[in-house]
Design a protein around this nucleic acid. Structure first.
Lengths: 329, 329
DNA sequence: TATTGTTATGTAAACGCTTACATATTATTG
DNA sequence: CAATAATATGTAAGCGTTTACATAACAATA
């Protein structure tokens, strides 16, 4: 049932039907009623595709992330979707994984589908040359990154100051007497690097030396933390505190420490990152760094929305993380 | 840059350009090369909106769920997106929450945006009358439910046999000597009810009486489990085993038990549900029921895809859950 | 009443594509 | 080499809207 059929049934022109559907003024009350009756009777559903074609706007946002199953990303995506929905936009979700080719492919499709804007949820490569697809996309629609550092026309970013977040965590542990700290991380992402910088800076500020054996890369997930501690012990690294780049890694750390008969926080202190649900499920509960993912996501949405409305927007914003102290330290 | 401009630059008609873009045969190799060169030079991006309008298909699927932040739903959504992407479809994600009005609203928008099909991820009401929007939608596009029991034209469902899943859990606990079991659940959803049935059936099969004080509704999340145990103790309910409808609830149970000085599994056995990441983060690790969410999601995708291709598909399928035995029982 | 100004409605073009059909070109056959 | 078949290309309509512009209807003013 389209606008033509409605027009015929109601005995008016398609323009009038369109006006009624869009609540435009300048349509006589009686005509409006007549048309609305027909609309209701035949359960008219406007075709948003046709509308998008002429309006040159789809009211759809493309969101690229590596994997929604990561609770951190899921939170961001939730916030993005909910906030945009209030403004009449929908979200196309893309799980790109880590391969660049996938990201490129998804980006291409989003442009073909004419999304009005793109939000990248932690999915930016460190090497700028690998981000060509982002610059290309920004040529057609605004692009907003969560935790990315690209700059350029039509590119905006909102980052969490993870360097400071980790720095504060080091500071806290130091103040509680810890001198031998180890950092476990799983990804060389933008924020991953920032966290490592924070760890190093914190150590140095306290006169400690962040040796190569004290910053180690592990697999993602619980297993990563578990194996990480195994490796530390195997290599006979001494430590009284372990910091991680993710709560789940810290959960794995707790598990291995427990198996090894070490008490947390008595023998070893542990601090995670993200303030995720997992940090409440462990025993003891994890101390962690809240990197304000909702706040960041909300910021990204606001930025994109403003850009779409033609407002001037600063190309980059920053959110400050916060220490959450619980039982593990 | 559209098809007309390309046609002009290449000195051919728009039909020919269209043919080249769509790799249709019957275009002379030299013409193809000539057009392709222009396509490349001007970075032509086909407009999927225009294409959708004439093809009457958007290659887009609407996915409604209450909340992606729930790791169970996130897994389902991930699988749905990934599988459909392989077939050239994208996914619009909708977090409807629990209110019916939101679900209705989202459904309406999906129909306006002309999605080719809809998948409901655990978002069906128990009272049929509250699901009118689903029946209405099925009038226009195929609808597939994960864990829902609606039937009707153009409606398909794939469910996990959660009744049996919980039944097996009861059986296991019984075989390990437990006689006083308590069930904690958080939602009166379709699968929530099935689980309760399984618990009751299991108890009765073993000659036990599932009293009203042994099936209690709690808040969702870690807090729910925590407060649930508090309440049990306050009301002086005796138990040697606790089953829950979600792993996170079980995590809360473990936490409270630990605080109360009860050892798991020595004093109390605990079994969760979902086999989620959380079940690996607790100490001890949670025994749980794997309800095969990926398998279910993959099934839903296959069903919808087959329907879209005009195949005959059984209106309802079932997946069998599996006990995962770990340290908590 | 003729004139002007408002308000309501209609007509037709445009959005960017696909595709049925018509036509032009080339190859194949007797 | 003409007749026919096969292939390549072009033309135009249609997908379902919005909207600029034209026109009609009506009210207000001189």
């Amino acid at each position: 049932m389209n606008i033509y059929e409605i027009a015929k049934k109601a005995g008016v022109s398609i323009a009038t039907v369109s006006r009624v559907v869009n609540n435009s003024p300048n349509v006589k009350p009686e005509t409006r009623e007549k048309v609305e009756a027909v609309l209701k009777e035949f359960k008219y559903t406007p075709n948003a595709i046709a509308r998008s074609l002429v309006k040159r706007a789809t009211n759809t946002i493309g969101v690229l992330t590596s994997d929604v199953r990561d609770s951190y990303y899921a939170s961001a995506i939730y916030t993005i979707e909910q906030k945009f929905r209030k403004w009449g936009y929908n979200v196309i979700l893309c799980n790109t994984g880590l391969e660049i080719e996938n990201k490129r492919e998804y980006m291409k499709i989003m442009l073909q589908k004419k999304v009005d804007g793109i939000i990248l949820v932690g999915s930016v490569f460190r090497e700028k040359s690998n981000n060509k697809h982002i610059y290309d996309a920004a040529h057609q629609v605004p692009v907003v990154m969560l935790n990315g550092d690209l700059t350029g026309k039509n590119i905006y970013s909102i980052v969490c100051d993870d360097e400071t977040g980790t720095y504060k965590a080091v500071e806290l542990l130091f103040s509680r007497g810890h001198r031998k700290m180890v950092y476990l991380y799983d990804a060389d992402s933008f924020s991953g690097m920032a966290k490592i910088r924070g760890f190093k800076r914190g150590m140095k500020a306290k006169g400690l030396i962040p040796g190569s054996s004290s910053i180690i890369k592990v697999l993602p997930g619980v297993m990563g933390g578990y194996e990480g501690v195994e490796r530390l012990d195997r290599e006979d690294v001494k430590y009284t505190a372990i910091l991680t780049s993710e709560d789940v890694i810290a959960a794995g750390v707790l598990k291995k420490l427990k198996e090894a008969g070490k008490k947390v926080p008595r023998d070893v202190a542990v601090i995670g990152y993200n303030n995720s649900q997992v940090s409440l499920c462990t025993a003891p509960e994890l101390s962690t760094v809240d990197n304000k993912v909702e706040e960041m996501a909300a910021g990204a949405v606001q930025i994109l929305y403003d850009v779409l409305r033609g407002k001037d927007v600063p190309p980059s914003m920053m959110v400050t993380p916060e220490l959450v102290i619980r039982g593990s330290c």
